[in-house]
């Protein structure tokens, strides 16, 4: 799968526009829009983790919701059973996601393309049914009673503050992923995606780079899972269902794979469409599947490609 045309400046511009509109919505919104905004920011984090994996690492994972689940469940267990501070829980969830992601990555990155899709899908579904039947994880009921952190004297149970908290995390993750993309690791990943055999023969450790990127991506997905658990106050196995992984994939394909801020745009568009359509009709999955197929067929670079074309059009006509 090819990543989109690379444009650092446009990436930042789009990200700033998205952040500004998030702040705007947060200031003027009510309780429900703020909740929706929080959901979208968390999904954006998830979409960015997938985008990094697919766009840089060239690995399309259909089981990434597993790491959402790992993050959410570890936050829940650390908070409920060990009484650890919620903020620390999120940090630990990131570390747990990183370690598990790296270990799983180490085993599965030797496969690629379709094999990778098949294995990640299988792993994700297994995690889901394991969480579903495990008594310690609360079975199908999940775990409830997760609280949000208190930071710098601010109680994040207040939706306005929590959205800002999420937005700050989003900016940090964006800055981190953008830096990794432009770092030697990112360049190596680009090279591996284009021709892994050549990187190998030049002495690059393909496996190490790939599992590192899988670990990074898993850590960010795990952070998103942890925040999702804190947003809702509970976690259920549904969070790691294949449809969630699938929605993440739809988001990055609609946004444009490898564009990072395009993934956020994809998350915004897909989640709002889903949110609004599921209110109106009960066959929104049909619409989503159909729309997704059309994007795959006709809009190869997603919304990012459209924006890029629009930008070039303006420059030419100036």
């Amino acid at each position: 799968m090819n990543a989109v045309q690379y444009d650092k400046k446009l990436r930042l511009q789009l990200f700033i526009i998205l952040c500004c509109s998030a702040i705007f919505v947060n200031i003027f919104g009510d309780y429900f829009t703020r909740f929706l905004l929080s959901e979208i920011i968390i999904l954006s984090l998830f979409a960015m983790s997938l985008d990094f994996l697919a766009g840089r690492g060239g690995m399309i994972s259909l089981g990434h919701a597993m790491f959402l689940g790992i993050g959410a469940y570890s936050t829940a267990i650390l908070f409920i059973n060990f009484n650890i501070d919620p903020f620390l829980c999120s940090l630990l969830a990131v570390v747990i996601g990183l370690i598990i992601g790296y270990l799983i990555g180490f085993i599965i990155v030797k496969t690629d393309g379709i094999f990778f899709i098949m294995i990640t899908l299988a792993l994700g579904e297994m995690f889901h049914s394991w969480a579903y039947t495990n008594d310690f994880l609360g079975g199908s009921d999940g775990i409830s009673g997760i609280l949000r952190p208190k930071l710098l004297g601010m109680d994040l149970n207040e939706p306005l503050f929590f959205s800002y908290y999420l937005l700050i995390l989003l900016i940090l993750v964006y800055a981190f992923l953008a830096a990794v993309t432009d770092s030697p690791l990112g360049r190596n990943l680009d090279a591996i995606r284009q021709n892994s055999g050549r990187v190998l023969s030049l002495g690059g450790s393909v496996k190490l780079y790939k599992s590192a990127s899988f670990g990074i991506s898993a850590a960010i997905a795990s952070l998103a899972g942890s925040l999702y658990a804190q947003l809702n106050g509970f976690v259920s196995p549904e969070i790691s269902h294949w449809t969630v992984s699938g929605e993440g994939l739809i988001m990055i394909i609609v946004g444009g794979i490898g564009s990072l801020s395009g993934a956020i745009l994809g998350a915004v568009v897909v989640h709002i469409i889903q949110h609004e359509f599921s209110k109106l009709v009960d066959w929104w999955m049909l619409l989503m599947g159909g729309g997704f197929i059309l994007v795959v067929l006709f809009l190869k670079e997603g919304l990012w490609g459209l924006i890029l074309k629009f930008k070039n059009y303006i420059i030419e006509n100036k």
Partner: peptide, 21 residues
Amino acid sequence: RVDPMRQVLLTFGLIYIGLDS
């Protein structure tokens, strides 16, 4: 003529359509 990954994703979209149908 499209690359294989795109074809796989296409079949993924079909799952949603099948389920809702």
